[in-house]
């Protein structure tokens, strides 16, 4: 698993990337009440906003850590946005994309480097 400076995580499985927000980010946001998801088939562009996460007290943009086409969105979040708080790196994932440029993965931070920026 790798991380972006904007607090997203990515798991790369073949050419599919699973994307969510980090434990740290979920904690900072507080009680998450709504996740605005992209449509299936839409294109994500690295470092561009692709959705928003709304908590009781704030809203935060979600940035794409990699470029690619959305092949699946986590519909569960519609009914149960709290999943992002409860299990941000598991059941609280946000989208799966088919990556266009796997090399982008190498530009992302490893766990130690990400931890350092959260301090």
């Amino acid at each position: 698993m790798k991380f972006s400076k904007e607090h997203e995580w990515v798991k790369l499985e073949g050419d599919t990337a699973i994307i969510g927000i980090t434990d740290y980010a979920a904690h900072q946001l507080g009680d998450i009440v709504f996740v605005e998801l992209p449509n299936k088939g839409s294109k994500l562009e690295v470092n561009k906003v692709f959705g928003t996460i709304e908590s009781v007290k704030t809203v935060s943009d979600v940035f794409a850590p990699m470029t690619g086409e959305v092949i699946e969105v986590n519909d569960e979040l519609d009914a149960n946005p709290a999943l992002v708080n409860e299990d941000p790196t598991g059941n609280g994932w946000i989208v799966k994309i088919k990556v266009s440029n796997p090399n982008e993965y190498d530009q992302l931070l490893d766990e130690a480097a990400y931890k350092a920026i959260c301090e």
Binding site: V33, V56, K57, T58, V59
Partner: peptide, 13 residues
């Protein structure tokens, strides 16, 4: 409720 829509949180957005 749903205050994240409003100016005091979202400001110019």
């Amino acid at each position: 409720t749903l205050q994240a829509r409003e100016q005091h949180i979202r400001r110019e957005k």
